[in-house]
Design a protein around this nucleic acid. Structure first.
Lengths: 114, 114
DNA sequence: TGTATATTCAACCGAATGGTTGACCATCGG
DNA sequence: CCGATGGTCAACCATTCGGTTGAATATACA
């Protein structure tokens, strides 16, 4: 399924979660290792990872008793394209932009603004 | 680390606020006109506009009794740059989007009043 | 002047968020 | 088998969020 822009942006709004994404940029990591540099509890980091996974920004795969976390940058594509509308161009008609999203991102349902 | 990223992403996480930004892409608008297409109260929209202004995504200028809202796309630059570190998909999609725009602007003008 | 319009403020409400703690599975290495 | 390790779950707490309503303020206009 395709997470909505709501969920992606909300996931990115937390500095701990952005820090986690930065860490995962280096390499895949186990949950405990992700939590290690933070002052918060392991359970809190586990929740953060759940939020990131729900947003599609990471995937988690359990091997043995270790759950590996992997960055999934493709989930940022929707949000990034949405932002580019406002950063680079003057006046984009919304319906035209939505048609672009449909064409560019395929038939997956988007969080299209009314 | 960067407090404005928190605020910008949190501001973008709400669909009503993103819809407002889309509306402001067309033209500057008064608060009442921004609120008109929404089912929510004027006070709620006023709050949303406050959030967007705090995030730097819009500016508000009062002329007479009307407060005009203006899109400030520069505020998205930090967030956009941050997101660019997570993938190389930007250039591809921007390129596709620019080609799309050329096609769009070449055609007759659209009126996209929602 | 008086009244309508534009916008915010203040108080409140319910739901969500980020955090904690302790109990609870699951799995690894003796 | 055991105990240690990896990770989640459940309950709770404080704060924030998006929304409402009604009052308040400021400006325009007849």
């Amino acid at each position: 399924m395709n997470p909505t822009l709501d969920i992606i942006f909300a996931a990115l709004a937390d500095p701990t979660r952005r820090a986690i994404l930065s860490m995962l940029l280096e390499d895949d990591m186990a949950v405990t290792d992700v939590a290690e540099p933070f002052a918060t509890s392991l359970a809190a980091i586990s929740k953060h990872l759940g939020v990131l996974a729900t947003a599609g920004l990471i995937t988690q795969e359990k091997r043995g008793r270790v759950k590996w976390c992997k960055l999934e940058p493709d989930a940022l594509r929707d949000a990034s394209i949405w932002m580019q509308t406002f950063g680079q161009f003057e006046a984009i008609h919304l319906d035209a932009f939505e048609r672009f999203l449909q064409a560019e991102l395929g038939s997956s349902q988007q969080d299209t603004d009314p």
